[in-house]
Simulated scan of single mutants.
Amino acid sequence: MLGLLLLQVLASCLWLKHSKVVTSFASPQFFYNNATPSNALLAQNPAWICQHYKNQYNFATLYDRKMHTPLYSACIYQPGPGSRSKSWFVEPQLIDKNSLKQMERESVLTEKYKFTLDQIKESQAVLADYKVMKGLDRGHLSPSSHQDSRESKTATFTLTNIVPQDSSLNTGQWNNYECKTMVQKTKDCKSTYVITGAVPGNTYVSGNRVNRPSHIWSAACCLGEDTQPKDAWGAIAENDKNMVELVSLGVLEKNLTDLYGKTVTLFNNACPRYQSFYLF
């Protein structure tokens, strides 16, 4: 089942092989039944990215080139052992559609390919933005712990998958949700689709370059042995407190509708909205 899903993902992402920034995900198999979130989550200056690294596609991201943060990242949950990347990357295809086909380190772009830092900064956040932040971490939307290989884990270390996240939350209750709660909630799932996002906030950091989200949220749709949805849930946290609320998918969508001011739908209707759920 998972192998077939990954083959579908590969087919869905071929448009990025030509570095095209288009008006939607071409064939979004990172999303259950091809259903992407509603337009309430649309970016101001959007880039639809199917993350390509080491000849494979790993997750999908809707990135806002004006706020210099992602709106959400989506993946098929497949945790596995492995270490975190020691390097951080940026996306050359956001600089120039004819540029390199996969993410690269800033130093390689400036030293080997002669891009200037200003060229990179026009379309995305850079390492210097996060080095000047206080009390905030480089918070993954699609975390490395949800990937199963060294290459796919490394792929999550692109700054287009990162938001300024409260340090205590990132290392505390949000990490607990990513690494413990998700493991327990998915133990009876054949496969699980995950979308994790950030609600744009009213403040910017790093010289007003990078938006600081007001909330971090995540949603999951769990498929059973018959490949049909059997469970769904969500999590949401204010981005200045070390506290995560575990909720049903329906409650999460309602909360996000209130925060965005527009109706938010995250998954295909087959994913249960108000099914009773449990933590363990």
Rank of each mutant, 00 (worst) to 15 (best):
G224H: 07
A232E: 05
N39I: 12
W233P: 03
L141G: 11
M67W: 12
D226E: 05
R150N: 11
S145I: 01
A270R: 03
T61W: 11
K185T: 01
N34K: 15
N208M: 03
K54R: 15
F267S: 12
L14K: 15
T186I: 02
N255F: 01
Y274G: 06
A43G: 09
F267K: 02
N98I: 10
L259M: 02
I162C: 06
A235D: 11
N39K: 14
G224Q: 07
K101V: 01
E91V: 06
Q184N: 14
I120N: 04
I76V: 14
T192L: 08
S142H: 10
N242K: 14
P81W: 00
H52M: 10
Y177I: 05
R65M: 05
A155L: 12
K114Y: 11
N239H: 13
L141W: 07
L159S: 10
R273H: 10
S149L: 10
A235Q: 13
T171Q: 11
D129Q: 11
S12C: 15
P81H: 00
L16T: 15
S206T: 06
L266Q: 11
Q29E: 14
K185G: 02
C221W: 14
A232L: 07
S214V: 07
K101I: 14
L252T: 03
N98Q: 05
V126Q: 06
F277P: 00
N34C: 09
H18V: 15
G139V: 04
D137L: 00
K180P: 02
Q56R: 15
K134A: 10
F280K: 04
L2F: 01
E245T: 15
V194C: 05
Y193V: 10
